[in-house]
């Protein structure tokens, strides 16, 4: 079997990592919702559909699941398991947390929005994957890229 190039490996690993996060974050948000009861009462719906509450549940779930990993290693849970990390596209160093949370993570919900009809938004984000450097729009805007975790970094993380 020919050895796959690094970028080819990244694509299916990135997709799988993304799929893990895609399901994990809403599942945790569901648990948060049950425990807090934030969407359980009539008052939550008194102003119409509680979009803000749903958004904050999703954001809280994302941060609770991924916050420490993002801060320490530039990883989400999915990327952690698939041995990937997010780094600065300029120098390969770990990306600043503010950029990971307030720029890159804003695009996290696009695949979920695709399920309710906004498919074109995730298409616009992903179409850039076919560019030379294989970076989605959210990576371009955040000036990051996704790369495999090296052996050295794995050792450092384990230590």
């Amino acid at each position: 079997m020919n050895e796959l190039s690094q970028s080819d490996v990244k694509l299916w690993r990135r997709a799988l990592a993304g799929a893990i996060d895609f399901f994990l974050v809403p599942a945790f948000a569901l648990l948060l919702m049950l425990v807090t009861g934030v969407l359980e009462s009539a008052e939550a719906y008194s102003g119409g559909f509680p979009y803000f509450r749903v958004f904050f549940l999703g954001a809280a779930s994302y941060l609770m699941l991924n916050g420490w990993l993002l801060w320490q290693r530039g990883q989400t849970l999915g990327k952690y398991w698939l041995k990937l990390k997010i780094a600065n596209s300029q120098d390969g160093e770990q990306a600043a947390l503010w950029r990971l949370i307030f720029v890159r993570a804003l695009f996290f919900g696009l695949p979920h929005l695709a399920l309710i009809g906004f498919w074109y938004l995730v298409l616009i984000d992903w179409v850039f994957l076919f560019g030379k450097d294989r970076r989605c729009l959210h990576d371009l805007i955040a000036s990051t890229h996704v790369e495999p975790v090296t052996e050295l970094q794995r050792a450092q993380f384990a230590g």
């Binding site: 596209s89 616009i124 729009l137 371009l140 805007i141 000036s143």
Partner: peptide, 13 residues
């Protein structure tokens, strides 16, 4: 190039 790609992305959005 960071500024250019950032700008390019924001223009697309």
């Amino acid at each position: 190039s960071y500024s250019f790609s950032f700008l390019r992305g924001m223009v697309m959005v």
